[in-house]
Structure formats: C-alpha cells, structure tokens
Amino acid sequence: MYNVVTYSLYFILPYVSLIILVCGVLYRITLWLNAGKGPLGLYLGLYRLVIKPRQESLLSSVKHILARMFTYYTILGSSYRRDYSTWLGVLLFHWGIFLLIAFHLHLWLPQLIISESLMFILGTTVGALTLAAGIFLLVRRIRVQRIYRVLINYLDDYVAISWVIVIVVLGLALRLTAPPSLFSEATKWALGLTSLKYTPPPSNLLFYAHVLAVELFMVYIPFAKMIHPFSMPVNPALYGRFEDINEIERRVIRKLGW
C-alpha cells in the first residue's frame, strides 16, 4: 500500500502535474491569442493600444515587458510617494522564488559539486528571505483591503500566496532538518524521473509534504490568478509600435519638401 501511494504521488503525479502545467498555460495563452483584437479586427476601433510611450520597435516592447516582469519598476514610479517597502517585498519574493527554482535544478546536476555548508547557507538564507517577503505581502494584502475599505481579494488571491508560503516553509524546514544523505537520495529520485525509471523518494515526511505541495501547485497554476506571469506578453497594452520624432521628420521632409 505504502509503495503504491509513493509510486503514484512521487512518480506518476509529477508527470501529470507537469503536463497540466505546460498544456494548461499554453492553452490559456492560445485562448488569449485566439480572442483576436476585437470583433471587427481592431481594438474597438483602434489599431494600437500601447501604454508606454517611445516604443519604437519590437525590441523595445520586449525590453519593456521583461523590465515589468523582473524589476517591477512601475511600483517604484512616484505618485506622491514611492512605495519602497512593497517594491522590496515584491522583488525579494519573486526573485527568491526564481533563485530557489534555480537551486533545485542542482538535483539534476549531481556532477556540479557544491559544498554542503554553502548549499545550506544559500538555501536557508534565500528561503528565509522569500518566506519573510511572502508573509509581508500576505499581510499587505489584508491591510490594503482594510485601509481602502474595499473587498478586492478573491479566495484564490489568498490561496495562491498562502500555498507558496506553505511550500517555502516546508522546504525551509526540510533544509534545516535534513540529514546530509538526503540530497543524494533526492538526486537519484529526480534523475529517475527524467529517465522514466522509478526510484523511491527519500523516506522523509517533510520531503513528501514539500514535493506534494509543489506538484499540486503546478496543477493549480493554469486555473486561476497564478496565470499572471504569462499574461504580460499577451497584453496588447504592452506591445505595439509607436512612431518617433525621426519618422515625423521624414514625413515633413518628404511631404513639405523641407
């Protein structure tokens, strides 16, 4: 029975989760793209819908979207004040997740030798910062509703961030308590997954819980607000071309003979 459960949850479910994640996200992007600009081929009568001035080429749109995705600079844009604390919270939380995901790739790269103490320091530091930022953002979310006297949060707004916090807490607890042998066992399990060969996962309750939480989160991503990182490249207000002053100059020269 025990073997059946671990086999299903830690060998079958990872593939299912990954398939749902990839296909779900692609499907939602396809739905956005298929929606088209509008019923009559324009954005309610407009050829372009861009929000950022001085976009002169596709490259500048890409830069603009990447800047929004990875620097969150609009939060720092001054409107009576600059919200440094929220910006720092958002930055640490998202970059913490990016780094933690990057650290986990080490499971598939056992040839990369990093000392246990360095792994421990990096993992716990980044994990703790991400956790602190996550809790800060959750508290902020509740506070925003209170100060503006508005009910803006849906259930999944709380679920998404709480779930990430749970994953980070479990991962951090695992990192703090795991015996040194766990990493090599986890590596075997992970490599087993990529080579389609079942290798039992390390027998550790926190490991089981952490991995299961991640797998279920992967399934959850395409369904609700966790789709948000994928919405930006498909948002017509962020891409599109604007002319620049040189183009005006060319027109004036051409048409008015100046």
């Binding site: 956005w32 793209l33 929606a35 600009k37 509008g38 019923p39 819908l49 498909v234 017509p236 207000a237």
Partner: peptide
C-alpha cells in the same frame, strides 16, 4: 471570446 484585451 472576441476581445483579447478584455479577456486578458
């Protein structure tokens, strides 16, 4: 179904 911006 018909407006990308609205759906997004």
């Amino acid at each position: 179904r018909s407006s990308r911006a609205f759906r997004n």
